[in-house]
């Protein structure tokens, strides 16, 4: 299966799952022991939420070929839905609120996915902007969503599952990590299934897909729903685990573009791509700011940082599209292969 082999290159001596298992062991054991609170708050928590959002968008855009510019809207739906389910339905476990939030995002995603049945390419991309603007407007406009809070900014509830509280940066990290791990595993199962194959078929040649009997319309809507579900849950993690507040402003068009950039830079149609892309997106501003203030000193204030960030990010996108359209994942695999052959030779 190409998706499988392309995605998890089996190393010569170890079975394919060994790398993943090792990675999980490090993430669950080593990182909580050695990680500083800065690492969790500034890097790992946003990284996990954005990775999940990138994963969701990659299912829609990378696998099913439907470009969306409204991902942040679905994050917002997820975050606000989880907040409201948790607030308004008594004794509903948090995990149920999160799942319901995912379904709410999926439902909204389904509605805004309807144009995909008739529209393609740019027209569809533009129509997904409608989701972005409409959702952001609705959440700002109707204070019911934010429980009539005067500032529109609301505190997220504490994270706990089955009586176990996930407090502090490490607790929230472990919570996010678990959610991301479970959803990533399910997404992986999906993309190697018949449905995943249908996604790619619709992406690569819609007419041929229809003719061989792929239910094209159903497949597209399913891609929208599943993608929105995952992005919605990512929104919950972003608000509940990372920011600890829920506010519409954070889920703006720039966020949507950011998630699209994660997918492009990381690698379209690759599960790992979302994680690679998110890592770069989260880490590079921090590196840039350190580097900038080290080289330029005081001139490099936050305004300059912000602008140079935009320039570097934009340049990266263009460079990746021109030089490495398959993203960091492809780059990584090539480097690994080269190291592999180098080792064998020596």
């Amino acid at each position: 299966m190409s998706v499988l082999t392309a995605d998890l290159p089996v190393s010569r001596s170890l079975p394919g799952w060994a790398g993943t298992a090792a990675l999980l062991a490090v993430a669950y054991v080593a990182v909580p022991i050695f990680g500083t609170s800065y690492l969790f708050e500034a890097i790992l928590l946003p990284f996990l939420a954005l990775s999940l959002a990138g994963l969701g968008l990659n299912i829609l855009t990378g696998y099913a070929g439907q470009v969306s510019l409204g991902s942040a809207a679905f994050m917002a739906v997820g975050a606000f839905a989880a907040f409201n389910f948790n607030l308004r339905v008594e004794s509903l476990p948090l995990i149920a609120s999160i799942a319901l939030a995912g379904f709410a995002a999926a439902a909204i995603g389904l509605v805004f996915g309807l144009p995909s049945l008739r529209l393609k390419g740019f027209y569809l991309a533009v129509s997904t902007l409608a989701a972005q603007f409409f959702v952001q407007w609705a959440l700002t406009k109707f204070s019911w969503f934010s429980n009539d809070s005067a500032s529109g900014v609301i505190d997220a509830p504490p994270l706990s599952i089955a009586g176990v509280a996930f407090e502090g940066p490490v607790g929230r990290y472990l919570f996010s990590l678990t959610v991301v791990t479970v959803l990533t595993f399910l997404a992986y199962r999906l993309v190697i299934s018949q449905t995943g194959r249908n996604f790619i078929a619709v992406r690569d040649n819609e007419t041929a897909a229809r003719i061989i009997g792929v239910p094209v319309l159903k497949t597209k809507l399913l891609a929208f729903a599943i993608s929105s579900f995952i992005i919605g849950v990512a929104g919950v993690l972003w608000a509940f685990a990372y920011l600890r507040t829920v506010e519409p402003a954070g889920f703006n068009l720039d966020r949507s573009f950011q998630i699209l950039f994660i997918v492009i830079i990381g690698g379209l149609a690759s599960i790992r791509g979302a994680f690679f892309g998110a890592a770069l997106i989260v880490v590079f501003p921090l590196v840039l700011s350190r580097l900038g203030s080290f080289l330029l000193g005081d001139i490099f204030d936050s305004g300059v940082l912000d602008m140079s960030q935009r320039i570097v990010l934009g340049t990266l996108i263009i460079l990746f599209l021109i030089l490495e359209p398959d993203g960091l994942v492809a780059l990584w695999d090539r480097v690994r292969k080269r190291i592999g052959t180098g080792l064998r030779r020596s």
């Binding site: 299966m1 998706v3 018949q194 249908n198 061989i212």
Partner: peptide, 21 residues
């Protein structure tokens, strides 16, 4: 040609059974 370029040869052919799923 109207193959699914992003799928392996085997998967392209397996996709031909899509109508039975």
């Amino acid at each position: 040609l109207a193959l699914f370029k992003g799928l392996s040869v085997l998967d392209n052919v397996v996709a031909g059974r899509a109508y039975t799923v």
